[in-house]
Design a protein around this nucleic acid. Structure first.
Lengths: 265, 265
DNA sequence: CGTGCATTTGACTACGCTCAATTCCGGTGG
DNA sequence: CCACCGGAATTGAGCGTAGTCAAATGCACG
């Protein structure tokens, strides 16, 4: 599952997402970080585009750059009308899906740079509920506008395709994780994934926040809360991590990787 | 036990795998109206478009209308270059994903009208391997051409978005299934899904083929083959289904739905 | 008409769930 | 500022579902 990531990861892990070419490009870059999506969104959305082109489109697209959610605020509800995608700037979001039997499961966590709301594209209604796990600021991308730009600018179209395909791949990896790995391996994989995400954002790879509750985490990983807790404390006893509750979590990457790889067969 | 023959009866020993090129647009068009993408693909790809507009685009898109795969032939390999999407016309396809530890899981089954290969859009390489479960004919949609048409025709663009979003939703439902439902419920849900798919194609809702092996089925549902077998025989004892091995399977829809709903919490 | 793989069934085991009891922590009011 | 409350987190004990191992049977293909 990490092998598959390595390709996309490298792209966005470059020192600065896009190399600066000249003064004008630099100017565009400044404008962009000032008022629009900011650097965070670059890796996801506009990686291959020249800066000036990109920022021109950005200005067309972004409706708001300062929406702020507080803990437990919902960004959209399951069943509500879909009209925009959202880019997380800071904080964190979880998405939940409730089925006909009332069973609810956490379908994803979204961190700075991630795009939330793709699920609504199909039917025009959101199939999940998005909730802030923390104080979170987001950008809004009205989808109609995005579609329009996408049809005018092939690169944008392609990137929307890619972003969606990425989501599909993410889900596939998670499916493989849930269906074929032990609870211990799943937790290890989850922490490694957060670590990777953290280092992609130029933050420490071995120390990051766990903004979600244990319940959410367990639910996301398809196990009971108790099981998750036990595994976390076991990992702590084995010096694989040091956790401060919901606070920062420092991990032994190699150790966790070993856990993940072990018991392969 | 009876309808199955109509599909398998076509034993024409056609050469395989490598798509044939259509020289003339006219040929493509005719073939198209006949049954190429035919009605099967309409629901998925061109639902909202007038027929004449649609078929004009189809001519641009469809490279081959008669690629035939036999049992165990692969349509594409994990890691191979992505350059086209494929529409299943008849038969069935499974996609498999192998992770770094060599663990393989079946990520999906695709039936007539379904579109295979979306996973490759992100990186330009397929992340799964697609294998025919049966004699299967497919259409090839070169992705570059599709992108081009999509950027010229907003409706097409929107439909590609939708198809991808649909895939995301499908995976999400499966995730919920795997992480929160018992093995029994998962099997019931799987059979109900096949039933729905079958009736969508105007075929009997309560009787359909199971073209995949028990192993594939179990793998797909995240359980051991033995578990799957036991559940199948249990269902049979309970008159919830009548199975002819890999052949046709007749099911009691209400009964299965009851199993699925039961044990809600 | 065998050979080899897929399927089925059985016996046993274990991983992870449930139920239950504390403990921890953040928020709230006195 | 402290005591209190409620939910989250942790820990423990026992059980059940589904996995593993093993053997028997069925089935397709040469």
């Amino acid at each position: 599952m990490q092998a598959a990531l390595s390709i996309t990861a490298k792209k966005s892990a470059l020192p600065t997402a896009i190399p600066l070419r000249n003064d004008s490009a630099h100017a565009a870059h400044t404008a962009c970080s000032d008022c629009v999506l900011g650097k965070l969104c670059l890796p996801q959305l506009f990686v291959t585009m020249p800066f000036d082109v990109m920022s021109a489109h950005l200005n067309t697209l972004v409706r708001s750059n300062k929406a702020v959610l507080h803990r437990k605020d919902t960004l959209f509800h399951q069943g509500s009308n879909f009209d925009a995608l959202y880019v997380v700037r800071t904080g964190a979001i979880k998405t939940c899906l409730t089925d006909a039997n009332g069973d609810t499961s956490v379908t994803g966590f979204y961190f700075p740079g991630d795009i939330v709301g793709l699920d609504g594209i199909n039917t025009g209604r959101h199939t999940t509920t998005a909730v802030a796990l923390d104080t979170t600021s987001i950008c809004t991308l009205p989808f109609a506008a995005l579609e329009k730009v996408a049809s005018q600018v092939p690169d944008v179209q392609r990137h929307v395709f890619r972003i969606m395909a990425q989501e599909i791949q993410k889900e596939q990896r998670r499916l493989l994780l849930l269906s074929r790995k032990s609870a211990e391996q799943r937790v290890a994989a989850f922490l490694l994934q957060l670590s990777r995400h953290s280092s992609q954002r130029r933050l420490a790879a071995d120390s990051f926040k766990l903004p979600m509750s244990r319940m959410d985490m367990g639910n996301y990983l398809g196990m009971a809360v108790e099981t998750l807790c036990r595994i976390m404390t076991r990992f702590e006893r084995q010096q694989l991590l040091q956790s401060d509750g919901r606070g920062v979590c420092a991990v032994d990457l190699d150790g966790l990787q070993a856990v993940f790889d072990s018991a392969a067969e």
